[in-house]
């Protein structure tokens, strides 16, 4: 029974981790390939989630539609809507240099969050969209969970293979060339803006897909899905810790950081329990519920600490970038200056 329970937890851990891996892969296209500092991941993610939710839920007066369409169609639409918005933003903002693009995208994501929250006719406002259908949910436990997990992991694998191909293709090389030396790429006759918009749109489409899976996984979507903390910054942490410019790094970072984020809650109580055991009994008795709740904050502290350690140990990510053609050569100086 115990092992079965751990197994089921592992399934949820990997499902959520897999969704984050999709997000991190999308970000890797934008930042790792193209050097585009997108700090508005939450916006694309949420647009995808809402698009999929509106299309696949049953008809309801609470929000737009409820069109009851198949899940696959919802996922495709999520990618399309997300890509379309990215194209619009890209057309306007893509010439901004990295930090400025970051601030612009953060601003646009915040405005999107307010729109999702306030345009209740379409999104049911702050109360969100409920009863979202999920793939394989008709199956009995644990097959429903395993089916969903398999779908997520297969998608991660497919995206990995596709993006590896893109990374090694001429397109990928042009992208990294633009990232590392824009002037040189321009001098070589490349249309820098067009390539950048392409990377931005491709990455956003992948993020939209993650949003669609997220909506299915949670079965509920509200404006808090656009929370910049867990939908933008956490993805950045995953990519940088895993290794930007490396698709395997992005996947590894996502699973690793999500495991830290989630599993710390299992280990911190054990740790605190040990500490409490060292205290004299009368002192332990005085520890009131308030202290117990406060110790939950230590978990977040621990997450921050692990992050610092990973960064200092692996400043270029756990799996650093390797150039496809010149894998043995040191990274060019220009790459170190970027950011």
């Amino acid at each position: 029974m115990e092992a079965y329970g751990y197994g089921l937890y592992l399934v949820t851990l990997l499902s959520a981790g897999g969704i984050y891996a999709i997000l991190a892969l999308g970000l890797n296209v934008q930042w790792g390939f193209g050097g585009l500092f997108n700090a508005g991941i939450a916006g694309f993610f949420a647009v995808g989630a809402y698009a999929s939710a509106i299309l696949t839920t049953a008809a309801t007066p609470e929000h737009l539609g409820g069109f009851g369409l198949p899940l696959a169609l919802g996922a495709v639409a999520a990618m399309a809507v997300s890509a379309l918005i990215a194209w619009g933003i890209g057309r306007i903002c893509i010439r901004l240099r990295s930090d400025y693009l970051a601030i612009a995208t953060i601003g646009i994501a915040e405005i999107l969050r307010l729109v999702l929250k306030n345009e209740g006719w379409a999104t049911n406002g702050p109360r969100g969209i409920n009863r979202i259908p999920k793939a394989f949910e008709g199956l009995p436990e644990p097959w429903a969970q395993l089916g969903f997990l398999a779908m997520v992991l297969l998608t991660v694998l497919a995206l990995y293979l596709l993006l590896e191909r893109a990374w090694r293709s001429p397109w990928g090389r042009v992208m990294t060339a633009i990232r590392d030396s824009e002037a040189a790429a321009r001098a070589a006759g490349k249309n820098v803006e067009r390539f950048r918009v392409q990377a931005f749109v491709l990455g956003a489409a992948v993020m939209g897909l993650a949003g669609a899976y997220y909506a299915q996984y949670i079965k509920f979507i509200g404006p808090d899905a656009t929370d910049p903390l867990t939908a933008t910054f956490l993805v950045w942490v995953m990519l940088i810790a895993g290794g930007s410019g490396n698709n395997r790094g992005a996947i590894l970072g996502a699973f690793l950081i999500w495991t830290v984020w989630s599993a710390t809650e299992i280990f911190t109580p054990r740790l605190l329990g040990l500490l409490a055991g060292l205290l004299p009994a009368d002192l332990a008795a005085e520890l009131k519920a308030e202290t117990v709740v406060r110790s939950a904050y230590l978990r977040v502290f621990l997450i921050g600490l692990v992050l610092q350690v990973v960064l200092q140990r692996y400043a270029r990510g756990i799996l650093p970038e390797t150039r496809p053609a010149v894998a043995a050569a040191p990274p060019p100086a220009a790459a170190r200056e970027r950011g």
């Binding site: 930042w31 500092f37 930090d99 910054f233 950045w236 942490v237 940088i240 810790a241 930007s244 977040v300 502290f301 997450i303 921050g304 600490l305 992050l307 610092q308 960064l311 400043a315 170190r336 200056e337 970027r338 950011g339």
Partner: peptide
Amino acid sequence: APAIISVIASFGLMLM
């Protein structure tokens, strides 16, 4: 080092 590393480090500090 690339600025993004410091940004992520500051994010960790924020949580801590």
